Simulated scan of single mutants.
Amino acid sequence: MEHFSQTLARAAERKGGEQNLFNLVSAPLPEQQLLAQTDDRCLAIMTKVVFQSGFSWRVIEQKWQGFEDAFWQFDPHKLVLLDDSHIERLMNDTRIVRNGQKIKTVPLNAQFVLDTANDHGSFARFIAQWPVDDITGLWLHLKQHGARLGGNSASFVLRRMGKDTFVLSRDVTAHLIAQGVIDKPVTSKTALKQVQHAFNTWQQQVALPMTQLSQIIGLSVGSNERQV
């Protein structure tokens, strides 16, 4: 497994220098900003990720204000009360994408948010307190306790909340395979642990957030060689 300084140097060369490279990558939110996120915004992020999964992200973005209105600005206390009659009406609401299975995740994830907030003070506080060196453990927690938050959805939720996390994009996965960390796309807890160990090692080598590590990996490989 190469030292991350080599990955960083390759990405910088492809993007016209280190300054240009870091202009392309984002950073996680400071802890206080992450803690300030309200439960309704956390539920909104979850819902957007669920609806964008396997669908046009652009369409969901264009209709998002309709989602906010149809789902009462994602107040979890209201949304846990959604019953079959409410869901049936939403299935005929042209303000949103009318996917019944995804609509049904909203009250389930609202309950998940409320239960977590009751135990930890807020959903964001629970997320903020989870150690980054076990971020894949948090992915598994979201998958287990949330609705339709498996695959990359959990990492997308965390990234959009501003939690420090890597994302297993196609290019990041290809790099992990090339480095011998895994031999195929991740499908098991054992593979997740191997990936977590690799990212922990790389973070110790260069002292960068997980968010930037995975973005830099993505920019160091694949077909994105255009100079900026």
Rank of each mutant, 00 (worst) to 15 (best):
G137E: 05
S56R: 01
P131N: 13
A207M: 14
W139T: 01
H86F: 04
N152P: 03
A198T: 14
T47H: 01
T105V: 11
L82W: 02
F51N: 05
G137T: 03
G218C: 06
R89K: 15
A147Y: 10
E2T: 09
W64Y: 11
R98N: 11
N20T: 08
N99S: 11
P28F: 05
G222K: 03
H86S: 03
Q33V: 01
H197A: 14
A174V: 08
R160I: 06
G121D: 06
E13N: 07
V157S: 02
K163T: 05
G100C: 09
I217M: 11
A11D: 02
R98Y: 14
V25L: 09
M91G: 15
K163N: 00
L138T: 05
Q19S: 15
L176M: 12
I103N: 05
R58F: 05
F71A: 04
G16Y: 02
I127F: 07
V80I: 15
D119H: 12
A12M: 10
P28N: 08
K78L: 15
N152T: 07
E68K: 03
C42N: 08
S188Y: 04
G16E: 03
R98T: 13
T201P: 00
A36Q: 12
W57Q: 02
T38H: 03
Q101M: 10
G137C: 10
T136W: 07
Q101C: 06
R98P: 09
A207Y: 10
A110M: 10
L108P: 00
S220V: 10
Q212G: 11
A198E: 15
R10N: 04
F71T: 04
T94K: 08
E31P: 04
V167D: 01
G54H: 00
K63E: 00
L158I: 08
S188F: 12
N224C: 08
Q37W: 01
N99D: 14
G222D: 05
S26N: 12
V132R: 13
G54D: 02
P185C: 12
L140T: 00
A9N: 13
L114K: 00
P76S: 03
Q215N: 12
I96K: 12
Q215T: 15
F74T: 01
L35I: 09
H197W: 02
A124S: 13
M161W: 03
I103G: 06
T7I: 15
H175N: 06
R14F: 07
L168E: 03
A11M: 04
L219E: 06
S153Y: 01
Q73C: 08
T7S: 03
A11N: 03
A44T: 09
R41F: 09
L114G: 05
S223L: 09
G218F: 11
A178S: 14
K78A: 15
R14S: 05
V181F: 14
R41K: 09
Q194S: 14
I60C: 00
Q19P: 08
E68M: 03
L158Y: 02
L208V: 13
P209A: 10
